[in-house]
Amino acid sequence: MTQAFPQHFLIIDDDEVDRIALKRRLRAMAPKAAITEAASPLDGLKELENPSIECVMIDYDMPFCNGVSLVNSIRHTPATRHLPVIMITGTDEVAVAVEAIQQGADEFLSKADVNETTLGWAIHSALNRSELRREAASREAALRSFAFHAAHDLKSPLNGIVGLANVLQHTMDSLPAEARPFLAKIEEQGRHMASLIDNLLAFADTEQSPAEFEPVDLTAAAQQAASLLDADIREAGAHVTISDLPKTRGHAAQLERVFTNLIQNAIKYRTDAAPQIAISAEALGDQVRVDVRDNGIGVPDHLRERIFNPLDRGDADDDAGHGLGLSIVKRIIETHGGRIWCQPAPEGGSVFSFTLILLREA
């Protein structure tokens, strides 16, 4: 599989000397190629709006943001998801290379090893991986279409079963009393299965088909999520505080879903005290970290990673939930070029933190 050598490169690196050195190498290999430079991840994202970019080279270590977050954003933006991306770093640590490749980089080079031979190999390899990714995406799109149609076909008879069980419970006076709990269970399990189908589709769709990113007011997204959960909040006697949050680029409905799921979790996993939920943010260079803090039962140390795994409900022994809520949240955040983690709150409870690209006002 061979593709034409790229004729427009984008270099994203905060070190001007390193950009000049890489630019010189590329000029020697492709004298007529256009080379665009960006000194920060945010500037890089702006340059990526240019559809003529054919290959991206990203520094791993930049202030307040490593290149992996930027790779995530590139991979999950429709216009750039198939671009060849090469991570070039000042280290040759295997762990860094593995992280870069796992998160979407096509190739990895240490700055100390960059020469025309290694760079040429990395570019051609990245081009081949990009083509394979395009082919895989086409097959995945066909599979997703099948899954959505299959889900619709599954839910139609399921909704009929749930509806008939409900009718039987309320219209058959002669139904033996001992039979009524079984009908209630049929209805409950049917609704549970329908919800599971919806959540499985949502889990798949968050990564595979993100909409074109637009400016998103995170304060408005959090407020809308709280408004949608107003009945649950009032029933639990919860109090939700939302500080002024900045803007980011993304999918408003998906980010609203992040806040919805995190608020729901804080209400569900509460102590006897009324839930206190505080949403705040802190700017970190080109990124923003959003914290959703609660006073609930907390998350044990051994579960803080597991809770983000699909269908893993940790040590929960109740019937509510499918173990997909936090998995969906994690996938949404990653499609927006960020990451999410959980840590204990100093006063008890949990803090769910996630990062996003900060959209600064012009």
Score class of each variant (00 low, 15 high):
residue 32 K to R: 13
residue 120 G to E: 12
residue 78 P to W: 14
residue 29 M to D: 01
residue 24 R to K: 08
residue 24 R to P: 00
residue 52 S to C: 04
residue 50 N to K: 04
residue 84 P to G: 00
residue 107 E to I: 10
residue 87 M to K: 06
residue 27 R to N: 02
residue 104 G to M: 05
residue 83 L to Y: 02
residue 32 K to I: 04
residue 106 D to R: 10
residue 41 P to T: 03
residue 88 I to G: 09
residue 42 L to C: 01
residue 61 D to N: 08
residue 121 W to S: 02
residue 37 E to G: 08
residue 99 E to R: 15
residue 117 T to D: 15
residue 107 E to R: 13
residue 38 A to G: 01
residue 96 V to W: 07
residue 64 F to I: 03
residue 125 S to F: 03
residue 119 L to M: 03
residue 116 E to A: 10
residue 41 P to K: 10
residue 79 A to V: 01
residue 38 A to R: 09
residue 91 T to A: 12
residue 108 F to D: 04
residue 99 E to M: 09
residue 58 I to E: 09
residue 103 Q to Y: 05
residue 45 L to A: 01
residue 121 W to K: 14
residue 29 M to Q: 06
residue 62 M to D: 06
residue 111 K to N: 03
residue 29 M to N: 09
residue 63 P to A: 05
residue 55 C to L: 14
residue 128 N to K: 15
residue 29 M to F: 01
residue 25 R to K: 13
residue 49 E to N: 07
residue 79 A to H: 13
residue 72 N to V: 00
residue 48 L to P: 02
residue 129 R to T: 15
residue 31 P to I: 05
residue 50 N to A: 03
residue 115 N to D: 15
residue 61 D to K: 05
residue 78 P to H: 04
residue 66 N to R: 07
residue 36 T to V: 10
residue 103 Q to N: 12
residue 112 A to N: 10
residue 104 G to P: 07
residue 22 L to E: 06
residue 89 T to P: 00
residue 84 P to H: 02
residue 106 D to Y: 10
residue 48 L to N: 00
residue 51 P to Q: 04
residue 101 I to F: 10
residue 97 A to W: 00
residue 132 L to A: 14
residue 104 G to W: 01
residue 72 N to L: 15
residue 68 V to R: 03
residue 92 D to K: 12
residue 121 W to L: 14
residue 35 I to H: 03
residue 91 T to G: 12
residue 64 F to C: 15
residue 34 A to Q: 12
residue 54 E to L: 01
residue 46 K to H: 12
residue 82 H to S: 06
residue 117 T to A: 13
residue 88 I to Y: 04
residue 64 F to A: 15
residue 76 H to S: 12
residue 124 H to P: 00
residue 110 S to A: 15
residue 91 T to K: 06
residue 22 L to M: 15
residue 129 R to A: 13
residue 31 P to K: 07
residue 35 I to R: 00
residue 66 N to C: 10
residue 35 I to P: 04
residue 51 P to V: 08
residue 122 A to F: 12
